[in-house]
Amino acid sequence: MTGVFKNIIRFVIIVFFQVFVLDKIILHQMITPYLYFIFILWLPFKINRSMLMLIGFLLGYTIDGFRYQPGFHAAACVLVAYIRPFIINLLISQQGAESNYNEPSIKSMGGITPYFFYIGILVLIHNAWLFLLESWQFADVGYFFIKTMLSSLLSFMLILVTEMLFSRNQKFKTNTI
């Protein structure tokens, strides 16, 4: 029960941070700072997959609500939530890490490299799908590509900074697999 409560608080804080801090920062039209989907990345391993997608949709729809245009972030978040389990299955090297640890982190994924890949791939997928949906009427491939790359780089760095600032203590739960 505490896990659910913790995640609800996390949800509210992350949405508010995205809407009232990051969205107010205007760097360049090519670079949009996105951090809010870290909520999906930090959800526990053992969450039901359909539940994960529904939470993703809710998160995206909330962000959309503040931007007065429904659909864009919801679509991107649902895609991230759908792909997340596949990526985790691919990248986890330890046998049974899902049952030993609660949430994905550097420690529970077994090193820096798999965790960086985990973040990097999902960040790319989120930004690419979001900007593709936003710009499919312009049909400007170069613009879309550069915007995705630069924004993803910034998102990636933001996530790393957040990871360092708020260290989540991942307890080793059990060694019986």
Binding site: S50, M53, F57, Q69, P70, G71, A74, Y82
Partner: peptide, 20 residues
């Protein structure tokens, strides 16, 4: 079920974008 739910949510989101 998961794939169908995923497709349903994606199509619903895109429907929202297009209709809005």
């Amino acid at each position: 079920f998961n794939l169908l739910l995923f497709l349903f949510l994606q199509i619903f989101s895109i429907y929202l974008i297009v209709s809005y």
